[in-house]
Amino acid sequence: MLVMVLIFYLIPLVMTVYLSFTSMKNWNVKYLFDLVGFYNYHRLFYMFQHDPSFKAIVLTTIVFILITLVVNVFGGLGLALGTFFLSDIVGSKFRLLWLLPRIAPIAVYSLVWYYFFHETSIGTLNSILMELGIIHQPIPWGQIIPWGAWSVIIFVNGLVGVSFGMIVFTSALNQIPKELVIAARVDGASAWTISKRILIPLLKWHLLYVLTWQFLSLLTTYCHLFLLVEWNLVNRDYGTTLALYVYNTAFLGGELDQGLAAAVILSVIGVSGGFLTLKLLGFEKMMKRPRGDV
């Protein structure tokens, strides 16, 4: 395992950081020793100020993360609480259904929404709205900038992330003694009151945990976005986040050296977020030493 960590985490990490200080282009080894200092970082900053495309990407990243985070956390909380009040069998069926976005193959999941939001009348959304007479022409939803594109990517990723919060909250809810809920029921509390006054206050820490963890995931996820952008379902600039930008510069041709600088920035945010989460989790508690001397 240590070897794998070395090969697939440490060495690549060092390489990425190192390369971000070179003028690496197109994976051409001849740039390998062409050190340029902080030039790439400067350029990134410059682009942010003057390149509308890149500005759009940064803006998209921020909006995408914030709104999707809210959708994920509250969607997950809502589903966990909702299914908590249903009988176990029905509740777990619903929870299972909402795992689908997470475990379906990424290409299939994206394909499904590709058809749903398709810009022609083949798109499900368009045909429904046209049938209802709300619109008369098919609308290219993902190409309306910025909010059309944002809505699509937030919707698609929002559904994927909901299951994480749902599962964490559900397992936390199952640890709360049932008598607390029943006692409140005897006193006449509704499901809504029980959630608001008893369950959610008891889930405070889990909320924080899901919030930070999901933030990190959203910061670094890009696989669904990649397909949506590649298939032209959403606008290229307003459907791309920083993580996807890094990938695209690296593998679809582009300013690789700047992509690498962006990657390093992402990593810094990621690692600090990781440590923050550890603190929140009360890491020492989990570190129980093994018993015995064997």
């Binding site: 990490l13 994976w27 670094t220 993580a243 890094v246 690789l256 990657a263 990621g270």
Partner: peptide, 19 residues
């Protein structure tokens, strides 16, 4: 292990690809 899990995969894949 935990920090690695939180690590942006995209930053790694670039280095992994060079390797």
């Amino acid at each position: 292990l935990l920090v690695l899990h939180a690590f942006p995969g995209v930053a790694l894949i670039v280095g992994v690809y060079l390797l």
